[in-house]
Design a protein around this nucleic acid. Sequence first.
DNA 1: CTGTTAGCGCTTTCAG
DNA 2: CTGAAAGCGCTAACAG
Lengths: 348, 348
Amino acid sequence: MTVTLADVAARAQVSPATVSRVLNGNYPVAASTRERVLRAVDELDYVLNGPASALAAATSDLVGILVNDIADPFFGIMASAIQSEIGGPGGRAGGERLAVVCNTGGSPDRELTYLTLLQRQRAAAVVLTGGAVEDPQHQAAVAQKLRKMTQAGTRIVLCGRPPADDTGAVALTFDNRGGGRALTEHLIGLGHRRLGYIAGPEERTTTRHRLEGHREALAAAGIEEEPGWTVHGRYDRRSGYEATLELLRRDPSLTAVVAANDSVALGACAALREAGRRIPEDVSVAGFDDLPFSIDAVPALTTVRLPLAEAGARAGRIAMGREEPPPGGLATVRGELMVRGSTGVPRG
Amino acid sequence: MTVTLADVAARAQVSPATVSRVLNGNYPVAASTRERVLRAVDELDYVLNGPASALAAATSDLVGILVNDIADPFFGIMASAIQSEIGGPGGRAGGERLAVVCNTGGSPDRELTYLTLLQRQRAAAVVLTGGAVEDPQHQAAVAQKLRKMTQAGTRIVLCGRPPADDTGAVALTFDNRGGGRALTEHLIGLGHRRLGYIAGPEERTTTRHRLEGHREALAAAGIEEEPGWTVHGRYDRRSGYEATLELLRRDPSLTAVVAANDSVALGACAALREAGRRIPEDVSVAGFDDLPFSIDAVPALTTVRLPLAEAGARAGRIAMGREEPPPGGLATVRGELMVRGSTGVPRG
DNA sequence: CTGTTAGCGCTTTCAG
DNA sequence: CTGAAAGCGCTAACAG
């Protein structure tokens, strides 16, 4: 029924091995023979059987990209950059790799299952993006899996994710703590003393690091955080909206709201506006990430720009072995404070 | 070196066949035997070899999702919904399917290559999202490939993409033309007579249909479009910004700007504001899609809401054979006009 | 440069 | 309910 390599060989009057060699291009073959084989492939409309070749060669051309939320541009931008570097279709010739992005939805279980699926497929490489869940049991399970996979020859790169020790994984970490501190220092520098903070989900490394940076800045300035100034939520707009309403209820005298990321900040702006507060005259707002839409907010959002595309591209190259991993297998990627219209001097 | 099914069989003192049956759960096995096998799997830390089983079974558990731009939430939202329905990890038990999203970047070549890769992998199903490129040669190539894949047993669903005849593919199409018309009718109803239009890339079906809807509305109202009122660009913010500047240069008397999508509309707003035009007092702006950030624009964006998540979920279910395809293999999904602050009565 | 020869690790009849 | 046997379609030594 389906055309196999043997059919092509028969038609081209060569051995299966030769067909395999011209298809893989990793072995010298006479030009005339190649010609003949290629013609046969074309005439028969032959399609290589991926599983069969992966089985025989004991490797596959799959590269996995794990993301927490594919609908969030934060991950989309990284995924896009990673993928453009893994030499997938349209990339440089030869390596026809299938970049597969897997959406974990932030669920530890899914993360593990996807890792297993990728392990089953004998993926050539896997890039895990974004913050990790801090549950020790889960982290141990992931670490063990990563270890197994590196041992099996799969290259693992963490992009925007804290390092996983003893796993053989290369990590490009974002300096969330430093960024968070810079942002809050900026606000304090403007004169703010009463700052609300809308954090992400409790158990995420990203959440914790950004919050810690914020608190470091507060502590350094001798500002004591009052209970109720921090609210946890999800990394989305709606969460920012609701959290801001809650913050306003708890302490109407806040002069600034720092959000876990830009989407949350946008939700915060909406809530503030509805509550009749002007930005930044009454309340300053700051985000994190500097996603494309952040500059379009009115006023434009003060935020910390993370070089998502650059980091993703680098992760992709490292995953493909086309770039040397950083010394110690760990590099920290810094963010850049982008001061825009949403933050200003507090009133009064 | 690596643990194989035979090792598990030996350890559990059963035949490889039995282990296979336990693992696939599609065959009666005595509870005690299953128990023993499962224990052995655990103790040996066995991982099924995906390619080997795909080869032997002649099918795989891969489901492909093709998107034009993974960094664009338009696609991210659909991909996320599709994936949640294909019973991937975290979904209902049993089917552990690997949903792989492939980013074509809008390139016809990549699209074809990814399709081939998926074909190679003997993907169980493929969902193609978003507009198609209109080049006849490319469309023929895609159609032929899709036909081949359906013949080989791969289920194909088009989501937000026009139907591909005679390919056996099910299509859930967005009513871009109707949405475009409704939007422009709304503007005309407000009193606008001079409307600029920022279209997407020339060769996309989505672009053409939305533009046609716009022109239908113009024609129905007896408004003659002046040359220069339409500019083509990409589906991103920057493009909207630049196109608006161009539109303003060509005809400063325009009272409304209709954008190809919400991102473009945001760029248009930015350009307008910088040019000192108030929205909507001086110029009304409308988008398309109703992505999450659109409601946060100031003023909030008038747009056409497309039920991206619903359509994606349905496409996913159809791809998995869990929902009956629509009659004739074709369903049209309508958008809903969302009138918000960015459109108003023209001045004067 | 090309053919021959063994498998890769699993599933699946077909018997028991 | 379980085992034995026969490949699935390809690649990779190893000879020539």
